[in-house]
Design a protein around this nucleic acid. Sequence first.
DNA 1: TTGAATGCAAAAAATTTGCATATTG
DNA 2: CAATATGCAAATTTTTTGCATTCAA
Lengths: 150, 150
Amino acid sequence: MTFEGPQSPDVASVAETLRARGMRMTPQRERVLAAVGSLGHATPDAVAEAVDRDGGPPLSLSTVYRNLEALERVGAVSHTHLEHRAPSYHLATHANHLHLVCLGCGAVSELPVRLVDGFARAVMERAAFVVDVRHMAVHGWCAACEKEEL
Amino acid sequence: MTFEGPQSPDVASVAETLRARGMRMTPQRERVLAAVGSLGHATPDAVAEAVDRDGGPPLSLSTVYRNLEALERVGAVSHTHLEHRAPSYHLATHANHLHLVCLGCGAVSELPVRLVDGFARAVMERAAFVVDVRHMAVHGWCAACEKEEL
DNA sequence: TTGAATGCAAAAAATTTGCATATTG
DNA sequence: CAATATGCAAATTTTTTGCATTCAA
């Protein structure tokens, strides 16, 4: 249940990383980044909606898609699959959390990543596979929904 | 790397479960079920393709979607998110495996679920949340791709 | 200045839905 | 027979692309 609300991205350092790769920081890109930060984790269209509500001029949907991709490419954001189809993006700096998604009510809660350390180590030893925890979504049932399922 | 190839679904028992719920077993449904079994895990359109290659008459795409949903509703199959967008279905009986998806080459390998037991227990204690292991996909990097990434 | 990014509109994909008809139990 | 499933075609929804134009560095 530990949902650590919105977070602000470190715009300056992301901008720097972008430039280091020959890419640029633009107002649109910054707004997308800020939206991802304030939403915590969100699908492309949720990001688009949030951006539309941030006061600035409307942003082309394709720009949202392209920016999420660009930001992920430079490691500023990453995604997981909290929902059935669309990917959910979150700030890379917000990734020290493990996402728990209830299949009953859809609620998303978070837990400290250290809970997977042991598991990640086992996978490493057993399969020489490095788990990307940022990308990990754990589905299941929260106490309330579990009870209803009976 | 333990990929336990295709599996055959227990048609009779699935049929029975369907009937118990007022649903029916149809040739189409059986073909979809068989395709999921032989593919191991597959997206709706991969299932559709497989069904088209099984010798029988072509199957309407909407029937594939509706059947995957129906089969999941009765617990015969379940899905995870191995790919970026589309869900991947697998037989429920094939779910004692944990899916490892390499973000580099896309390869999907499997591991015995018992590797997550400890983690699942920790989540249960810590968050009163029951992890649905069948639904768990672990993304990361296989040894080969990890090396290339440097 | 110049290549990256944007906006828009059009194209593709991926799903879903309505409805008449066929089938299962 | 009655109710569930199917097939098709049309409608949605979601994501991607092409291209002329704008803008960051």
